[in-house]
Write a protein that binds this DNA or RNA. Structure first.
Lengths: 205, 205
DNA sequence: TAGATTGTTAATCGATTAACAATC
DNA sequence: TAGATTGTTAATCGATTAACAATC
């Protein structure tokens, strides 16, 4: 079950999980690879194949119990727990991320917000008190934080990433519009809305 | 040059463009597939192959002139112009998107912000005056807007998408955590930070 | 039982990489 | 010229799909 599973399969599991939770919310208790596939624009064969990497979660003839499958996926993805997350950057973007209410219930809780600007230290964003970046290493280590989000300008992102990794962070969600150099074993995901926009204009007349 | 080019190639071009702009910013004038690949963690062969779909932009022995290649990619991606964008949803998330300064210079300008809540209509977010969703169709049509962003709750996202598409929108950046059903010829990109987070926890110990 | 749907195997399809002639 | 790097072809690799026996 370990490292033999293709990244691209892992990357689809959260999509399945989201769709399952939505189905549950709509009152469904059972679904099928066909129904799920139709909702997601994915072939039923692919969904069955993806799931089969982790076990047989369904029943021939009837399909998948949504609550059960969703629980299994949560376990596989390790979001059957709550991860503490450090956020670096308390500007416009960082503040918005800090205030975003959608992380809880889906496995994540921001517990610390850092910024480099002296005038911001001690100020509040919602429930958080902004901490100085100089205490990042200590705080991340003491709390054994493994996941961070970067919401600083592009120029500072690499330095912040280096500091985070040195402090023990192993997964980074990077909002800065720049590619990070990271060592083996550190995982990075990127969010740059402009990239997504530019992926669509090609197809417009 | 048209529809024969794989989606996955198109999806990488904005990444190349971003890296080129960064190289330019750092003072470089020329680069190579090898240098670019090293920065991005992509093989040089793939970069050359991707670019070759659109023409020969480089020179043997020397590589690519950054300014030229960047201009060409902008043309290919149709971001050598400024696209007007409508934003639907003026809650926490929508407001943050509206205030985000990173769209300009990279091809996009939000020109209208809509919301359904009567108490928000007429209020301002930065430079925008929030417009009622009832005038969405008229405004989008009159301004010939082809691109929109959705930042409303999951439950409303499909309805908003339907309205946008009926009004002529052909590309949607969806921040709502839900898959949209759209007809042929409408392009959708998704941003859900939790999905990205859940793609990393699997790999954590 | 008949109908439906899984899990899996084999076949197909497509994307990535390696290699190299061309040439700056 | 010698060294470097492109653009492209062919080989490899991996992912998706089709099909079906198993079985609920």
């Amino acid at each position: 079950m370990p490292s033999t599973i293709p990244d691209i399969v892992i990357s689809r599991l959260p999509i399945y999980l989201r769709a399952l939770d939505r189905l549950a919310q709509e009152g469904h208790e059972v679904t099928s690879s066909h129904e799920l596939g139709k909702r997601l624009g994915i072939s039923s064969a692919q969904i069955r194949k993806d799931l089969s990497h982790f076990g047989g979660f369904g029943k021939q003839g009837t399909g998948y119990k949504i609550a059960f499958l969703s629980g299994q996926l949560r376990q596989v993805l390790k979001v059957d727990r709550e991860w503490e997350v450090a956020l670096v950057g308390a500007g416009d973007l960082g503040s918005a991320v800090a205030r975003y209410r959608g992380f809880t219930d889906r496995g994540f809780r921001i517990t610390h917000v850092f910024d480099a600007a002296p005038e911001k230290i001690g100020k509040r964003i919602g429930e958080f008190v902004i901490e100085p970046i100089s205490s990042l290493k200590k705080v991340v280590q003491e709390n054994n934080i493994k996941i961070a989000m970067i919401a600083v300008p592009a120029e500072e992102a690499q330095n912040v990433a280096d500091a985070l990794i040195e402090a023990g962070v192993r997964a980074i969600l990077n909002y800065a519009p720049i590619n990070l150099k990271t060592p083996e074993g550190v995982h990075v995901q990127y969010i740059d809305p402009v990239i997504h926009m530019q992926r669509m204009t090609y197809y417009l007349p």
